[in-house]
Write a protein that binds this DNA or RNA. Structure first.
Length: 272
DNA sequence: CACGAGACCTGTTCGC
DNA sequence: TGCGAACAGGTCTCGT
């Protein structure tokens, strides 16, 4: 479910506190409980539950779609994949049905990892860079320039949509924001990356950053039964708007399947 | 190297 | 109403 803007929203809520959840910076872990073993990428459940108690939450960062909790000894990395979510609740509350992992703090609060589809993964490691090293550039980083994007596009001969979803190419985009960015940039999802001109690359660079920034400003998108409080879904240009008129030209939005994922686009604004 | 298919999972919605 | 199919914000691995 979560792409960069949703993950960033969660990070900010955990770091600074949100509407009805406190900031967890500085809290000390009392115990950890893994309820679905495969949630843990590394280490095994025994070591995970043994190593966490006593560690303090120093900082919360984000890299692509990974949440990175800097603890006193280790780094705790969490990837929400399709249906994962994190929330802070009273330690006395009954455990929710889809709770896969819970971290109890010495102040009686707990951080829970809720994940209906069980795709989410958690790493506890002292070597966080090993796990994050394969990721492409951070789209909002000031060192990421449009010329970088142009060169990266020309280093491949791939269709734009699957390429934008490739986290080694660029970190953080998912199905929503890739479709939105391509529409804003007026580029067809099937266009080949090495056919993109410098001007088009500049437009795509700007579009990617624009949709991500807007997503963050709106606290992410809330869709279906997964709700996180954001309202970016009310401003989608193409995503899940199949059959509805393009907000730019009125043409009917189309849905095609590319790389096993749905791609939404305007046949008029985004021509091959 | 690029791409498609299948796997991993559960829940909701759609079509007959 | 019921029931199976299709679909869902992600990523990995394998075969061509």
């Amino acid at each position: 479910m979560p792409e960069l803007p949703e993950v960033e929203t969660i990070r900010q809520n955990l770091r600074r506190g949100g509407a009805n959840s406190p900031a967890i910076l500085g809290w000390t872990i009392e115990s950890a409980h893994v309820l679905w073993a495969r949630t843990l990428a590394v280490p095994d459940v025994d070591e995970f539950e043994k190593r966490l108690p006593g560690q303090q939450v120093i900082e919360i960062d984000r890299r692509g779609k990974f949440l990175v909790f800097e603890l006193s000894q280790d780094a705790l990395l969490i990837h929400l994949r399709m249906s994962g979510d994190l929330m802070v609740e009273e330690g006395s509350e009954p455990r929710s049905t889809h709770c896969r992992m819970a971290i109890e703090f010495t102040n009686g609060q707990r951080l829970v990892f809720i994940d209906a589809r069980k795709f989410g993964r958690v790493w506890l490691t002292a070597e966080r860079d090993l796990i994050l090293s394969g990721l492409g550039p951070e789209p909002l980083d000031e060192t990421f320039r449009s010329q970088d994007l142009y060169h990266r596009l020309h280093a491949h001969r791939r269709r734009l949509k699957p390429l934008l979803l490739d986290q080694a190419f660029l970190a953080g985009l998912g199905n929503i924001y890739a479709d939105e960015a391509l529409h804003l940039a007026r580029l067809h999802p099937l266009m080949l990356s090495n056919q993109v001109s410098a001007v088009q690359a500049e437009r795509l660079w700007w579009a990617i950053r624009t949709v991500i920034e807007e997503g963050i400003r709106r606290n992410g998108a809330s869709i279906d039964w997964v709700y996180r409080g954001g309202d970016f879904q009310n401003y989608f240009r193409v995503y899940q708007r199949t059959g509805q008129p393009c907000r730019e030209c009125g043409e009917v939005i189309q849905r095609i399947v590319v790389g096993q994922r749905s791609a939404h686009f305007c046949p008029n604004c985004q021509q091959l």
